[in-house]
Amino acid sequence: MATLIAPTLPKRNRPKRNRPNGALKPARGIRSPLGGPGINLLYVPALLLFAVFTIYPLLNGIALSFTNWNGYSLERAGVGFDNYVRLFQDDTFRLVLVNTFIYGIGSTIIQQILGLGLALALDRRMRGLNAARAIIYLPVLVSPVVMGTMYYLLFQYNNGAFNDIVTGLGGEKVAWLANADASIAIIVAVNSLQFVGISMIIYLAGLQSIPQMYYEASTVDGASPVQQFRYISLPLLQPAFATSIVLNLIGGLKLFDVIQVLTGGGPGYATNSVSTLIGVAYFDNQSAGYASGMGVVLFLIIVVFTLALNTLLNRRRLEQQ
């Protein structure tokens, strides 16, 4: 998960942490295990887990991307940068890369607009407020596979709810998932609607951390609600924007489950994301080395996007401060 970079003072300008007069020095026996160097031992379990489940697979994946391993055989050979050269000559990978950006950026834009709108609508005293917030957040708790299956049942040709409505209104059944563009739009919509609750919660927290006195003072000065939103809420929501955008973007770029359940990447390769294509290349095409190369490229894309966004959004926040 990305973290925001907070501005820090140069070391020489930092205030010294003086113990107040009369304050007791912690007893040695207590300080040693918890306050002294011994406290570092508490990092060990987390570092171990991080090393086993993140660092090792990452390094192993990078190493695999330089081999021709088929994913199960006892034999593999080094192929240098061949997998990366193949990636950049592969039309399917280019198509899928574009899809991945559509899923990432499209979902992020929709989630910011809807999430902020919902947060503004629910940032007030009203009856049923908690229920409304819970209902909007609830889909986040549902597995994307379950969510995808529910939407599949809505969009399927025979017995699908949407086609029942269409035929009920006298129209012809539509093969919603047979068209690549329509399928991509459906996937973006399903992903956005499922996770809009996360954006809503982040913006809601951001709105509630803005001191009320700013709004009161601006009301006295005659500011309209739109002006209050433009000149108070928006600037002070910058940290919330940064968090929400980065989280949604990473989720969208890594999108897998919904695609797998709704379209299986089809028709053809047309709705695959890089994540689903990695699965296809690894297990179906038996090109684990090539799939690992795709994984490394996806990792780099996410790192670059996250760093660029963090830098951009933090710079804007500092400028406004």
């Binding site: 047979a178 690549a180 028709p267 053809g268 047309a270 179906d284 095409n285 038996q286 090109s287």
Partner: peptide, 25 residues
Amino acid sequence: PNGMWNTMVTTADSVITGQSDVDQA
């Protein structure tokens, strides 16, 4: 070669749905 089955499936699928023409597949 091993691993081509999936490509056979995907290319036939793309032709059946009209997603690709024969030459592309």
